[in-house]
């Protein structure tokens, strides 16, 4: 009859501990806002950090407390923002415009010169530690792929020409790559813009740019003069085109002596 005693003891212990657990679970329950979990489920779940918080759950906690703006989630875009607003019962403020990353350098290995040979960790930030990077141009893409490695959406790939290519379908415009790039070559732009863009990041004077790269903007202002809509400005020896004013006439492309003004959408989608 020993087994009866074993049943009673083990079963009794089970009942006592079970009861204890049930009691403590109710007595010391942590008040948690149910909306946190709901919102976290709505988020993309990439933990990319674009919102400024370590991960999606942290953003959800903050947004419920009202410590984060509802439109912080860049990859989620308008859809996610609308859903968050619905859960929180506030009016949506999301803008319709989708963002994406664009690489402002076309200085491939054969046209942008190196000032020395770099042997070391294949990472742009690491390469920047030695003489400010191995490319003669202080502003151009180093092409070691820090942005490719850090992209949480697999939207960046290293092209055969040694420059990163943005996969527009996958890019959410989260801006993680732009923050990681030690040379600031990547900018976050409106994905729907049209017109022309100047694919250069060099703020050096004309002479220095010429010595470093065959395709760098030298700030000659030929595009400024050619533009009928005053859409082009030159700041710090670098031309910028205002996409809201640009009507895609192509006069700047003809005028550019360095052949760096490209068609925005075509470049983005290729």
């Amino acid at each position: 009859m020993d087994f009866v005693a074993a049943f009673v003891i083990i079963g009794g212990l089970g009942l006592i501990f079970g009861g204890l657990l049930a009691y403590t679970a109710q007595r010391f329950a942590v008040e948690e806002d149910a909306r946190v979990e709901t919102i976290c489920d709505l988020l993309p779940g990439a933990n990319c950090g674009a919102c400024g918080f370590p991960g999606c759950i942290n953003f959800a906690e903050k947004v419920v407390k009202g410590e984060a703006a509802v439109d912080c989630c860049v990859p989620g875009g308008k859809g996610v923002c609308d859903n968050i607003c619905e859960v929180l019962g506030v009016e949506s403020v999301a803008s319709e415009i989708k963002k994406m990353a664009e690489v402002y350098c076309i200085g491939t290995k054969d046209v942008a010169y190196d000032k020395f040979v770099y042997h070391g960790v294949p990472d742009c930030k690491a390469a920047m530690m030695y003489g400010g990077g191995f490319k003669a141009c202080k502003y151009g893409c180093l092409g070691l792929g820090t942005c490719v490695g850090i992209c949480p959406f697999d939207a960046m790939h290293m092209g055969a020409n040694g420059l990163p290519q943005v996969d527009v379908e996958r890019c959410t415009g989260c801006g993680v790559c732009a923050k990681a790039c030690p040379r600031g070559v990547i900018r976050i732009v409106n994905a729907d813009r049209t017109g022309k863009v100047v694919l250069c990041n060099s703020k050096d004077r004309g002479k220095a740019t010429r010595q470093a790269c065959e395709v760098g903007c030298i700030g000659c202002k030929a595009c400024v003069k050619a533009c009928p809509n005053e859409a082009v400005v030159v700041e710090d020896n670098l031309a910028y085109i205002d996409s809201t004013k640009c009507d895609d006439c192509g006069k700047c492309v003809e005028a550019c002596t360095r052949d760096i003004i490209k068609n925005a959408v075509k470049i983005a989608l290729s």
Binding site: G120, K125, A126, M129
Partner: peptide, 12 residues
């Protein structure tokens, strides 16, 4: 392996 360079990055 460029260990010192990695360590320098970490130190930075």
């Amino acid at each position: 392996r460029p260990l010192v360079q990695w360590i320098r990055i970490a130190k930075g």
